[in-house]
Simulated assay, not measured.
Amino acid sequence: MAETRHTKVLIIGSGPAGYTAGVYASRAMLEPILVQGIEPGGQLTTTTEVENWPGDTEVQGPDLMIRMQDHAKAMGCEIIGDIITKLDTDARPFVAHGDSGTTYTADTVILATGARAKWLGLETEEKFKGFGVSACATCDGFFYRGQEIVVIGGGNTAVEEALFLTNFASKVTLVHRRDELRAEKILIDRLMKNPKIEPLWFHEMVEVTGTDMPLGVEGINVKHTKTGKITHIPCKGVFVAIGHAPSNELVKDVLETHMGGYVVTKPDSTATSIPGIFAAGDITDWQYRQAITSAGMGCQAALEVERFLAESEETDAVAAAE
């Protein structure tokens, strides 16, 4: 039987922003409901070593997210394993529809849906997804023990994945459109010193090649970005690490966005273009995209929700008195 749940604050998403918002909203006695979404824990669940989380010299991404979840739950946040498929924002309370059939009504909403991996859009990339083509080294790297593999990209994600994959692969080729990486200097230094990694500059992947019976990758074709020359690289796995796009499907047609779909928030605030809806983490952060900044925004969103609800109650009280 379909169920309807009401809450003062509905948190959609369960990365560092969502769980931190859950902690702070619970401490404010707002009794929040947090709906985890399709990937509980967010992007950090597909990351191994995290070395830039304050207080932990090194921590595994999945372990950190379990700790955050447990913390939010201990504070009183109700955490539900559901997926919000639609969000009605025309009037308050807002109405969110869950894939489970549950309807959630909320006086305020904190969007913390994060971001998802980008793909190149190649027909052969799509063909071999899950059969040699992946966007998650920590998910699939184990399958390539002793094999030659390729990583596509030049930012932090690509370098981190290349370094991680050296734990399994015999050789990792990093294919990048330029001759300069956009990653943090410490990561670049590690990559350049790793004997298993070979950078291939000024190239882009144009095709994944492989077998049909059974379906599997045998190599890729890359094109030189200056000369146009095509080169074949034998490999058993291809990891696409070209960045992420905001997971804005619920609000892209109703909230103001910019920079390719990131939700716009007011200056020095997490408030969006609709009063009562707040955004925190990678759905709004096109610039930093760090776990610590996401957590900070989750805190900020919860504090702003608390203030928003208090002011709304005062306004309602004054209106009732008149």
Rank of each mutant, 00 (worst) to 15 (best):
I110H: 03
E249V: 00
T166C: 07
S273E: 05
A17N: 00
Q300G: 08
T89W: 01
V318S: 12
E180R: 13
L174M: 15
L250T: 00
I80C: 11
D179R: 03
C235E: 00
G261E: 08
V133I: 03
E49S: 11
V175C: 09
G219P: 02
V159M: 06
V159Q: 10
G141S: 04
I149P: 03
F202N: 15
L44Y: 02
T103L: 13
D253R: 01
Q60E: 14
F128S: 01
N156E: 10
M192V: 11
T265Y: 05
G37H: 08
M259W: 14
P199T: 09
A245N: 11
R67H: 00
W119H: 10
E126R: 15
D285M: 04
V222S: 03
H6V: 02
E249D: 15
C299D: 01
G219D: 05
V159Y: 01
K193Y: 12
T225D: 02
I220N: 06
S269A: 05
T108C: 14
G146P: 05
V263Y: 12
G154C: 09
E160G: 04
Y104M: 01
N156Q: 05
H176T: 06
D285A: 00
T20V: 12
L64C: 08
P195S: 08
L34A: 09
E306N: 13
I79D: 06
C299Y: 02
K252F: 03
P93V: 10
A280L: 09
G155C: 08
G276E: 04
T166S: 02
